[in-house]
């Protein structure tokens, strides 16, 4: 019994440690004060107004959407194509290719950022949307590849052989069988790519100019230079979006499982 209570206390305290900070920041989004502390004197939406109408914040949100969309498209297309290529078991460099595709997740962001700054400057892509999208795509790729290869691995290859034997040409097999079955993986890869871009700061610090300041980048300098409850408002949006995205991912995962689960006998 004391063991049980100790376990329970430990679990609850850890949950508190994990979740409380995220909850603590939420009410501050609605403060009327200019400083970011409790107690909250009175409620107001002024910081959301600031977020949506103050020039710096509004531009940052728009930039995040532009760059996030670009990153999602580029990373999803490149990552999905490559994941399909990786299915070929006879392919000699399969393992090293896969490692290469996953490596951007591992390499420290600052190292990559410094290198990219030099290189993009050489290409004249520094301080441009294209440059930032490229940088974000590099770090979003692993998420797409992991997600799509996971979905593809769940497809029973005999299902595709069956489609062939029933008269479907390779392109048709891909369109009617492979792609629909992999779709949940592609979608969750795309969502993760978007989320990665939205949250990316370090690379943005190195390759983006003042005109490409993203929301995350703006939050970074706001915390550093003049912290205000606008941060809390932005955080509120982020957490709301996270929960939404989380739901989408969970739903598509379970959809994926339901679809590709080998039919129970």
């Amino acid at each position: 019994m004391p063991m049980k209570i100790a376990k329970l206390t430990f679990a609850l305290l850890t949950i508190l440690f994990l979740v409380a900070p995220l909850i603590a920041i939420l009410p501050l989004a609605f403060t009327s004060s200019v400083i970011l502390t409790y107690p909250i004197p009175s409620w107001s939406l002024r910081w959301f107004e600031e977020l949506f109408f103050a020039d710096a914040w509004r531009r940052a949100i728009i930039n995040s959407l532009i760059i996030g969309t670009g990153t999602t498209l580029l990373a999803t297309v490149l990552g999905t194509a490559a994941s399909l290529g990786l299915r070929n078991r006879l392919f000699f460099f399969r393992g090293s290719m896969r490692t290469l595709f996953l490596l951007p997740m591992v390499v420290p962001a600052v190292v990559l950022g410094v290198g990219m700054q030099v290189l993009l400057a050489r290409f004249g892509l520094i301080n441009s949307y294209a440059g930032v999208i490229i940088a974000h795509t590099v770090v979003a790729i692993p998420f797409v590849v992991v997600s799509v290869t996971g979905a593809l691995a769940g497809i029973d290859e005999r299902v595709e052989l069956a489609a062939q034997s029933l008269g479907a040409a390779p392109v048709t097999v891909f369109r009617r069988v492979t792609l629909p079955l992999a779709m949940p993986g592609v979608l969750s890869g795309a969502v993760l790519a978007f989320a990665t871009s939205l949250d990316e700061v370090v690379l943005t610090l190195f390759v983006a100019g003042p005109n490409q300041r993203t929301l995350a980048r703006q939050m970074f300098s706001s915390i550093r230079e003049n912290i205000s409850p606008a941060i809390a408002a932005a955080a509120f949006l982020f957490i709301a979006a996270t929960i939404l995205i989380g739901l989408v991912v969970v739903l598509s995962r379970s959809m994926l499982e339901r679809r590709t689960r080998p039919a129970a006998s």
């Binding site: 299902v159 008269g167 679809r259 080998p262 039919a263």
Partner: peptide, 28 residues
Amino acid sequence: PTHKRDMGVVFQSYALFPHMTVGENIAF
């Protein structure tokens, strides 16, 4: 190629299309 051979194959694992209904599977 397989899709032009006109042979019906039944696999041990059945290999039904999990994203299609029974009717759609047979209509394929």
